[in-house]
């Protein structure tokens, strides 16, 4: 790559409240991890509701799970896992001060995020057409109708809030890509890229758990 030669960079200096760049980077990373711990509990409440629903009405949840679009869900999982790879790769490029590679990898990560949202939107459209949206057009008969409605209520809540997180992640990554292109980062300073990466990987981990809970429920059944 042509960007292997280091660009002339000013020596990065910490903000006044920090003694060293390392200390500043450590504080930023720690702050993101504390935030992510609160996010675990944010999703935890909804996952607890799901656990209660599934334990109380296993047959209904199994039937609801078979309504979900497993192909889109699986492809989207692959998309997010790949976006985590390009994000980790971007952080690696930042560590080595490779500006062009960093910019491109961040752009690819953001595009994969957009692809995820696009597929999710297509899936929502299908669910709207199948009258599976509680509160708006839910129409289902049969003995498990109320459980299926609760399942889809949780489905839209969980995937909707996850989707908001993906959207925020895409915006953050796009901002990082623009900053990287303008030469804001160097091998000595790339903390914002690293912290954005932590957020993106967390959003990926949330999806890793949502995927089997939503799409694989009841698949071994009739």
């Amino acid at each position: 790559m042509s960007d292997a030669t280091p660009h002339p960079q000013p020596v990065p200096r910490p903000e006044p409240q920090y003694a060293t760049m390392d200390q500043q980077a450590e504080a930023a990373s720690f702050g993101m991890w504390v935030f992510l711990a609160t996010e675990v509990l944010f999703f935890g409440g909804m996952l607890l509701a799901y656990a209660w629903l599934r334990a109380s009405h296993p047959d209904g949840v199994a039937e609801a799970g078979r309504h979900t679009k497993v192909v889109i869900g699986s492809v989207n999982t692959l998309v997010l896992l790949t976006s985590s790879l390009t994000m980790a790769w971007a952080v690696h490029a930042a560590e080595h001060g490779r500006r062009t590679a960093l910019t491109r990898l961040l752009a690819v990560t953001a595009l994969l995020g957009l692809l995820f949202l696009g597929l999710k939107g297509y899936e929502y459209h299908g669910e709207w057409a199948e009258h599976l949206v509680p509160g708006l057009n839910f129409q289902e008969n049969g003995p498990h109708a109320r459980t299926i409605e609760l399942f889809y209520f949780l489905y839209f809540l969980l995937t909707g809030i996850h989707g908001i997180h993906v959207t925020i992640g895409i915006v953050l990554i796009a901002v990082m890509a623009v900053r990287a292109r303008r030469g804001a980062f160097s091998a000595g300073y790339f903390t914002p890229v690293e912290v954005t990466g932590l957020y993106w990987h967390f959003v990926d981990i949330v999806w890793i758990f949502l995927y089997p809970l939503i799409y694989l429920a009841g698949r071994s059944g009739p």
Partner: peptide
């Protein structure tokens, strides 16, 4: 573009688990 091997193996493992 200098893809670290660890990252690639991790991704392959994730896809296999999926």
């Amino acid at each position: 573009m200098g893809l670290p091997r660890t990252c690639l193996i991790t991704w392959a493992a994730l896809v296999a688990l999926l």
